[in-house]
Nucleic acid binder design. Structure first.
Length: 229
DNA sequence: CTCCGGGAAA
DNA sequence: TTTCCTGGAG
């Protein structure tokens, strides 16, 4: 608490990301460049572990194909069957088909017509689509269009609150702004990924491995826990 | 605030 | 056996 005020929140967060970069040198690339595929994969990944997402995407890709044209003309039942392993398949398949239809009809099958617009406008358009909330929209904008937005997922929300850099009841926009203000835009993608890796392996929702955490000395949650034993 | 949901970890 | 997973909508 005191330390963050003394040397500044910006430096505080940059130090945290530097630590994570050293701790997790392996970078998993989001080698997918097609914004539409990024969008569909992100929908499938909602509240689902990546192993199952991968299987679902593989099957959808091979049996239907992930494009506005193929998905818009495929029966929802078929889409649901392909992505079944990822769970929440009835909701997700409905959303995927609807999105494909809207992109096809309203934007000529070209999602880049949306994401190449000015950031705020592009974000508003994405949020109109069914199944797309702030997290999914921002993932598409960052990884699909290299826009300066910082997507906030459950891991990043949890870590931010434990670190003590946002209020306990902070909402999506508040957490997003803290990270965007602290980091240079070219760092958003790697920081987003590093925080998720850290959240999965160490700063887990249940029984976090605080002892092996490389940023515990920056963490209010850890200090509270240490102080009370 | 609840529901959607199969699969793997615990 | 229960819990949890890179959310969003009703």
């Amino acid at each position: 608490m005191k330390s963050a005020q003394v040397y500044g929140l910006m430096e505080h967060l940059r130090n945290i990301i530097d630590r994570l970069e050293n701790a997790y040198p392996e970078r998993w690339e989001w080698k997918e460049r097609d914004p539409f595929k990024i969008l569909i994969v992100t929908i499938i990944s909602q509240r689902t572990n990546w192993k199952n997402v991968d299987a679902a995407v593989q099957r959808l890709e091979s049996e239907v194909g992930i494009s506005p044209e193929t998905l818009a003309s495929t029966d929802v039942g078929k889409i649901a069957e392909c992505i079944r392993v990822a769970g929440l398949y009835n909701e997700k398949s409905e959303k995927i088909k609807k999105i494909a239809q809207v992109v096809l009809e309203e934007y000529g099958g070209d999602l880049s017509k949306i994401i190449s617009m000015p950031l705020d406008e592009a974000r508003r358009e994405l949020l109109k689509l069914p199944g797309i909330g702030p997290k999914t929209a921002d993932v598409v904008l960052l990884f699909g269009a290299r826009k300066p937005v910082f997507p906030v997922d459950t891991h990043i929300t949890r870590i931010s609150k434990r670190l003590g850099i946002v209020r306990e009841n902070a909402d999506y926009e508040e957490i997003r702004r803290v990270w965007e203000d602290a980091l240079p835009p070219e760092k958003y993608a790697i920081a987003h990924i590093l925080l998720i890796i850290h959240g999965r392996r160490v700063c887990k929702s249940q029984k976090p491995n605080c002892q092996e955490c490389v940023i515990k000395e920056y963490c209010e949650y850890y200090k509270r826990k240490e102080g009370s034993r």
